[in-house]
Design a protein around this nucleic acid. Sequence first.
DNA 1: TCTGAAAGGCCATAGAT
DNA 2: ATCTATGGCCTTTCAGA
Lengths: 193, 193
Amino acid sequence: MRQLDETDLEILSLLAADARRPYSEIGEEIGLSGPAVSDRVTRLQEAGIIRNFTIDVDRSELRAGVPVLIRLETTAIDRLRDRLREADPVEHVFVTAEGEVWFYARAEARNVRTWVESLLGEAEATYTVTLVEEAEWTPSIDGLEFALTCAECGNTVDAEGETARIDEEVYHFCCPSCLDRFRSRYQRLEESA
Amino acid sequence: MRQLDETDLEILSLLAADARRPYSEIGEEIGLSGPAVSDRVTRLQEAGIIRNFTIDVDRSELRAGVPVLIRLETTAIDRLRDRLREADPVEHVFVTAEGEVWFYARAEARNVRTWVESLLGEAEATYTVTLVEEAEWTPSIDGLEFALTCAECGNTVDAEGETARIDEEVYHFCCPSCLDRFRSRYQRLEESA
DNA sequence: TCTGAAAGGCCATAGAT
DNA sequence: ATCTATGGCCTTTCAGA
């Protein structure tokens, strides 16, 4: 029930670069006071856009296991995705539009075959393993400025847009009418279920 | 020139889960005082193991572009890797042992072909594009406890090990002799270059 | 929703072990 | 390398607009 604007994206960008930067300093850069930045960060957390404050660890220096990229062909996509997400050595999970599951992990054992199979459990899947020499994570908030799309009509969402939380999920809208239409559609859907 | 032990890994794990947790609280959990934790965090930063403090943003809620996984076959691996690392829409870059480059990004344009080619610049490469439906980042420090390997002999590095910074790079060793051997080998290498 | 002042808490330093 | 104690900065709260 509040607006998500470019100022929020600027804050995200600055915090992604350095989450320990004082709010007063961030405020100076974007033309707000410290407390105002604090408020917005709280709201971004409540909306689920900031999932948490964390550290970026250089895993290559810890040299834990052999980094591998694995492609799975399976019929049990959801079950495997959930299982992999929980597994400690797994760092990234991708589900493709073709229904394949890809994941990046650090194999802890000499025998990769048994390691993969213990990771998969009883789910049936065929897989191919690719050794990785380098892996880098380079997140960026920049370039997203005008990238928000309306959940109802697909248009770009700008500073005039609205953000709403419906059933624990956050949606963005370009205008109040789209929000209304989405709400009633959603309600009809729920009633029929 | 200092020891890297399991306590450091515990701190990394706790900070990865919540980087805003007070040091005094972290200290209580692992049996140290606040300032002692502060000291170790400073050292982990100086050693380059903590790259920076950041936020984990739920990008799926920002809906910026179409997520794609792209495989490149190229002879200009280093040049492309560096170029991709700098590009805003690129979030992950993997270089495989076979010399392929994989990357995950959010394509901002309708025409993926021109978008990829502008990303690659003048480097020659053939590529295949896979659409991604879901992407998750699930980092974990747990499971790395005894995973440090000696840069000289490959053995496991435990609490008795040593860590040294040589030419802006951090290396771990299982014992002082391995550190010495590595140092002299490195020096000979430099002199011959 | 923002600003500005004030309170409380946290981090980092200093000095001793 | 770690502890306790302290000083100073940062975050958050609270009126007011």
